[in-house]
Nucleic acid binder design. Structure first.
Lengths: 208, 208
DNA sequence: TAGATTGTTAATCGATTAACAATC
DNA sequence: TAGATTGTTAATCGATTAACAATC
């Protein structure tokens, strides 16, 4: 949907690198600088920018501040993004405590779990019972969620989220979820990613 | 390197689905069954199989057991895979406690952290000081690692792992790591994945 | 100016999809 | 057999890379 996920991912990476570069006092960058940082190519970088109408200065590369503000404009990272997490298991809690989100404007406003033992209204963010999810989403106008529940509960959770008004999710459940066409799902299957590495480092019987 | 990561990922997904199907007593599947399960297409499924010499029966689809064993043969999932995790923060611990790995033959044999408070030789798996990483990898012949340390420590950690004999890593540090050509790195940047979802659900100013 | 770097067009590459013959 | 499904070839699509004119 819309422009390819991969390009957007790269734009975010450019932005991340630029913020770090800025913090150490760099004022100008070249497509080559960015390529090097990301393990990409200068052509790729300029092509990506070109696709979104981002321009630099021939001979002088890109002014870091200008580039950064153009990217931020594009990626819309000036407003806060509130999210909720379904599932307060290890992964959910790891995400909850991961402070890299906060400084990028991503605020986890609540977790939800159906295990009463995990519920904790006092924690920050609070861990609430599933029953309150629907109401919470509506009241707080949340449109982004994370699914970190077991696979057998994932589809049901997604259906509930969609009904409540969520527009896109990051899904850690290892299953292909069904959703309307205009709903955005980003699947991450950690075990699969790990197994893939295992596959590629295996001594090969035959090349192809 | 070798066959595209994406195909291998799909093969793992087929295998995962087949194991679940088997557990509920299904004996035969069609390319269409698999396509449906993965949100893919029947042509894609047959193409993937064709690329690896996996065949079924015209008119009768695939015998689940045969297919499963062919995939397992290919993906080499009959031996155990030992891994270590560098970084015993929230993410490292979440992975450590995630029991989905174990039943797929992935065994986390140790975590490593340079914070003495986190070190815990008694836990299972043990959390050891970084100083023991090099020796541990050599002694236990580990070739797969996970990098779950802060970004500024990631390159150094990778260098150490490579030196110790690791052949591939799953990297959660949000930075492009440098490594030899024959070393395999699978990068996962959770924040970026989340931001990407946020981008795609944003009300658009202009289509393209 | 001369040299370096951008921005874009064209070529290439790879992956997905369509079409269809083979055949159980 | 007739119909359904595989396996593969060819066509399409999209993304990456190469080439190079524009120009600061």
């Amino acid at each position: 949907m819309k422009s390819a996920k991969q390009i957007i991912l790269r734009l975010f990476q450019y932005r991340e690198f630029l913020m770090r570069a800025k913090s150490i006092g760099i004022k100008n960058v070249y497509s080559d600088t960015l390529a090097e940082a990301l393990g990409s190519t200068a052509t790729q970088v300029r092509k990506d920018f070109s696709l979104f109408g981002i321009t630099g200065n021939k001979r002088a590369g890109y002014k870091l501040d200008d580039l950064l503000s153009q990217l931020s404009e594009l990626l819309g990272k000036n407003q806060k993004q509130k999210i909720i997490i379904a599932g307060a298991g290890n992964l959910g809690k790891a995400l909850m405590q991961y402070d890299g989100f906060k400084k990028e404007g991503i605020e986890i406003v609540a977790l939800f779990d159906n295990d009463p033992v995990k519920v904790n209204i006092e924690s920050s963010p609070p861990i609430l019972p599933i029953e309150r999810l629907f109401e919470f989403i509506g009241k707080n106008k949340i449109n982004l969620g994370v699914i970190a529940v077991p696979y057998f509960a994932a589809q049901q959770m997604l259906d509930l989220m969609i009904l409540a008004g969520i527009k896109g999710v990051l899904n850690f459940a290892p299953i292909s979820l069904k959703s309307p066409k205009d709903f955005f799902i980003n699947d991450i299957n950690l075990r699969l990613e790990l197994e893939t590495v295992a596959y590629f480092i295996k001594p090969l019987k035959q090349e192809d």
